[in-house]
Write a protein that binds this DNA or RNA. Structure first.
Lengths: 214, 214
DNA sequence: ACCTGAACACCGTTCAAGT
DNA sequence: ACCTGAACACCGTTCAAGT
């Protein structure tokens, strides 16, 4: 007996599904998350998930949202100078994404319909306007920062190169003689490029358009 | 008769497969490209593709490569000032990607193993070094530009907002009162943000690190 | 309300069989 | 060499059936 159809205490909850899905994404990648596999991880049969989410993408949206919810946005509401706020936010934003790299491809495409993404857009926009930026500029700043951070978390630049001294024929790629060395320093290369770009972006905004701000 | 197993003239070629795959990606999106569907589009049965590519991802890699091959990189080899070169390259790069938006999520993750991606990395690196940048800076500049362009082509910022005046409760999102208007101006918003960011990036590189360059 | 197994219409890939 | 159909081990999702 006891091949129970409905337990008196629900076996699943949205929270538990999302938590286990995130753990699975982190440990085995986005491709490992099938409804059957995720259900097995939860000790349940595949279709059960559909009592809590209407679609697999909705589960992944919730996973992405919890990741974005980790981003610190307090600097937009506490009087921090807008340049410092953008730098600190950018670093926190990138850190949240690189902590869960396998969800980034999903997260980066998706629209900002996820509550945490909207809260972030709201905070950035509000912070820039309060700093004196015209609304049109504030919108652009939020957008271009997202481009840069998402792009940097999405695909490692350094990972694109093979760690093999003979991989890049000088006849084909005359300047990539040392490129194979990048493979050994992935994080440093990507983090260094991110830092350089982030500072350049903020300095450039200040120089080119800063007269519009307060 | 004539249920032919092997025709005397091959029905398929790598070029034709890639061309039809790109057309399918463009018209119906990445999800529409299954081996069976693509084969049907080519007038052939599913497994036939495996005579020309060892894997579906290899087909998509080839598709992505033809897209990246459209990017103009001539400015790195003809004495153009490095600032102008980065601006022109960035615009050409983004234009190539936004011409085929559905392949971008695949392209942006993938490593740079694709020949066109390597050729581009080679040209940018060579151009920056020739302009006087130290190699470590040249590498970072290539990487951070890729982050920004890929991020901007990947997910529209404006598309994240719904075109509905009541969509954003001021209690939840105090500064998004006008956000629903973004939906109607997607391209302009995204293109404006890209231009602003691109100029800021180049101006910032010049201001902060330009003394290292020639 | 919330779980189950069975079923539907798909996948990517392998492989023996045909010419 | 290059195509075929059959087969394997999967998918996301629906649905009637159980409690």
């Amino acid at each position: 007996m006891c091949r129970m159809a409905r337990p008196r205490k629900p076996l699943l909850s949205r929270e538990r599904i999302v938590a286990v899905a995130l753990a699975l994404v982190d440990s085995e990648g986005l491709a490992a998350v099938s409804t059957r596999r995720l259900a097995a991880e939860l000790g349940v049969s595949g279709p059960s998930l559909y009592n809590h989410f209407t679609t697999k993408d909705e589960i992944l949206d919730a996973v992405a949202d919890t990741v974005v919810a980790q981003v610190d946005i307090s600097m937009f509401d506490n009087g921090t100078d807008w340049r410092t706020a953008l730098l600190d936010w950018g670093r926190s934003y990138r850190a949240a994404l690189t902590a869960h790299p396998h969800i980034v491809p999903f997260l980066a495409q998706g629209p900002g319909r996820r509550p945490a993404g909207l809260r972030m857009a709201d905070a950035v926009f509000g912070g820039m306007v309060k700093a004196g930026w015209p609304p049109a500029h504030a919108t652009r700043i939020g957008a271009l920062m997202r481009y840069f951070v998402a792009g940097s978390a999405l695909g490692s630049f350094a990972r694109g190169f093979v760690d093999d001294a003979g991989a890049y024929d000088p006849a084909d790629y005359p300047h990539l003689g040392q490129a194979h060395l990048l493979a050994g320093h992935q994080e440093q290369v990507d983090e260094g490029a991110f830092e350089t770009g982030l500072r350049a972006l903020v300095a450039g905004l200040d120089e080119l358009y800063g007269e519009n701000a307060g």
